[in-house]
């Protein structure tokens, strides 16, 4: 039952990174759609929409991701929907990412000078065109750095799905650790794999940020 820590064990941990990446990608894609909806609702002219989006953000940024995971996990099941770990993990992380990306992108939309929107209004552009051709492209430029920064947070956040039993990098590490009892080796390796994933992204985000800071320096 007990194994020693060898190449097979290291390989098991390293290959589990694919599930971390896939889960991150799904949550990021879902979060991008949800976050865009939240961001647009936050800057909408309709008061109810603005407040609904704000409450969503407050709740999801004001409670632990671990609790959100537990609630989605047990909640979907008692509502009679057959779920699996993939659905629970992806749903919870998508909601989490929607709230954070929504708030980040709202900031970017609001950072586009109001004059831009006003001028295009004066030119007779409707809301949809105004957003699509004038505001959002400028906001998108500003948003790249913080969005990449959030991606790092999201990749790290996927580690919590190990607590509900989803097998990704962290859980793979635990499984191997439970079989080999080499915690120093195992968790160092797991940490190193996360670092290899996240560090380049962090560097990229910082590079984008400083480039943007130079571009907008007055």
């Amino acid at each position: 039952m007990f194994r020693s820590f060898g190449p097979n064990e290291a390989l098991y941990i390293i290959t589990a990174v694919q599930w971390t990446l896939l889960l991150s990608a799904i949550a990021f894609a879902g979060g991008a759609v949800g976050g865009m909806a939240i961001a647009l609702a936050r800057v909408s002219a309709i008061k109810t929409l603005r407040y609904a989006a704000l409450s969503f953000i407050r709740v999801f940024q004001g409670t632990p991701l671990l609790m959100q995971l537990f609630l989605v996990y047990f909640g979907l099941s008692i509502m009679g929907v057959g779920i699996n770990l993939w659905v629970a993990a992806a749903a919870a992380l998508t909601l989490h990412a929607s709230a954070y990306l929504g708030e980040i992108w709202r900031g970017c939309i609001e950072a586009v000078p109001a004059g831009q929107s006003e001028a295009s209004y004066a030119l007779g552009l409707k809301y949809g065109d105004r957003m699509r051709y004038v505001v959002l492209p400028q906001a998108a430029k500003i948003s790249v750095a913080p969005t990449v920064g959030f991606l790092v947070q999201l990749i790290k956040a996927t580690s919590l799905t190990s607590i509900i039993g989803f097998v990704e990098l962290t859980r793979a590490g635990q499984i191997i650790n439970n079989a080999t009892f080499q915690p120093l080796t195992v968790f160092s390796l797991v940490a190193a794999v996360y670092f290899v994933l996240c560090w380049p992204l962090s560097m990229w985000a910082r590079h984008l940020e400083s480039r943007f800071a130079v571009a907008t320096a007055r």
């Binding site: 790092v152 956040a157 580690s159 919590l160 590490g173 797991v190 996360y194 996240c198």
Partner: peptide
């Protein structure tokens, strides 16, 4: 190291 690894780890 701290910012690029999960807190759980």
């Amino acid at each position: 190291v701290i910012r690029n690894t999960p807190f759980l780890i």
